[in-house]
Design a protein around this nucleic acid. Sequence first.
DNA 1: GGGTATTTGTCCGTATGTATT
DNA 2: AAATACATACGGACAAATACC
Lengths: 259, 259
Amino acid sequence: MPDPMYRQIAEDLRQKIESGVLGRGTQLPTELELREEYDASRTTIRDAIRLLITRGLVETRAGQGTFVVEQIDPFVIIVKPETGFGLGESAGYAADVTAGSRRPRVSMPRVEVQQATGVIASELLLADGSVVVSRHQQRFIDDTPWSLQTSFYPMSLVEQGATHILQAVDMPNGVVSYLAEVLGVKQVGWRDKITVRTPEVNETGFFKILEDGRIPVFETFRTSFDESGTPLRVTITVYPADRNQFVVSFGDVPASASA
Amino acid sequence: MPDPMYRQIAEDLRQKIESGVLGRGTQLPTELELREEYDASRTTIRDAIRLLITRGLVETRAGQGTFVVEQIDPFVIIVKPETGFGLGESAGYAADVTAGSRRPRVSMPRVEVQQATGVIASELLLADGSVVVSRHQQRFIDDTPWSLQTSFYPMSLVEQGATHILQAVDMPNGVVSYLAEVLGVKQVGWRDKITVRTPEVNETGFFKILEDGRIPVFETFRTSFDESGTPLRVTITVYPADRNQFVVSFGDVPASASA
DNA sequence: GGGTATTTGTCCGTATGTATT
DNA sequence: AAATACATACGGACAAATACC
């Protein structure tokens, strides 16, 4: 038994794309033309194209047509000790991006005092509903939206004297070094949890990606610890998965030389 | 101007799901019932449901109905030095999985001698078209498909005497320790590149996920280096993103205590 | 700026096939 | 075997976005 017609059409178009007959960025025939070419209804043609869309091969632009997607030059997020120890918020994370001609930029933080939800509370080893300080920032590279980041700090840090984290001001040297100065608290390690999920509505808006969940987002949970093993903060960062990749190195590794 | 009707319907259903009115695993009203409830055509109802499907909230089963997806207890892939140094292929990677009651299993490797393609060649610092040995394995946890893994080794290792990597036999102590024994070559570090993409057809088949690309896959490139900084091997591993997450630790981090 | 043609987006109706119970 | 529910496919109509003159 053969595949349904819309799958056959999608497969035929896929081969034309991957074989290079339809190059990157070129326009596909219009739905009307494909309708005649394959002798199918417009519904069936649209089902075929939808399959190619969810596979990430083509994109449609209302009023223009259907196009083979261009390859995106990805941002590379380097995860390694040197970029993290002693560096904080903006400084540390901006340095994560591979150099090139790319200019990172960070928005002013939005600071809130709120109650810790389940995951935040458990990561910080606090009781559910404990008060925490959240600092939220939007981060750009070359003025294109790159990531959304929120850090959560236990309120006890403020009570101990680190009052500046309540101010909506970017800390050039990072919050971690500020904590070291004021409280003598040192970050000695962290744990990153990297997952993938469909984007929330506010995220699709910021990243300007389609809000139907076709493009997933990376979500990283970074829990930082001080010398006594107490969680210092939890940082949640969200990146669109279509333009980002992570690089993790261990041991002696020569400088990167590959794409 | 309000959103189109199918989006409003999808939004209404989404709220019912996330608020708990429609619990995990419960069945949604049938398309016919939804048609009457929202006074829309079946096409519009199906468009709304399709939106929820690509967002990963519901799934349809022909002949049964539409159901709210169950939450999956994810596999946690630990990326840290202790699991990698001195351990190899099967041993090292099996240990990546958090303990619990989960039993990892690895298929017999499929060994091939082939020419290195672009990425493989450049990662191994070989000329394009150089001969390499590939060892491909399917990996399971509790008999559910977990990941597909292919390692590429330069043919020069075989010529220097490491002929066992040509045999289609699992190496319980790992290929890396075998190379250390036979050739005295030690793996001193590695670099992981973690990306997300839509699955290939053979991958959807193995993982038993829908082949329309709704569920993305993690793809990790691990390049391992010896003491002289020469790439020893490249390992490509593919995991379905709906049931896996990565944990990366640096520095002093207490044993995990969180979900 | 405005109007028109083109192209995709939304929505309707209907019929038949296929999987499951 | 029959009923149910989703899957596929056809047809048509109008709206919205875009490009071009």
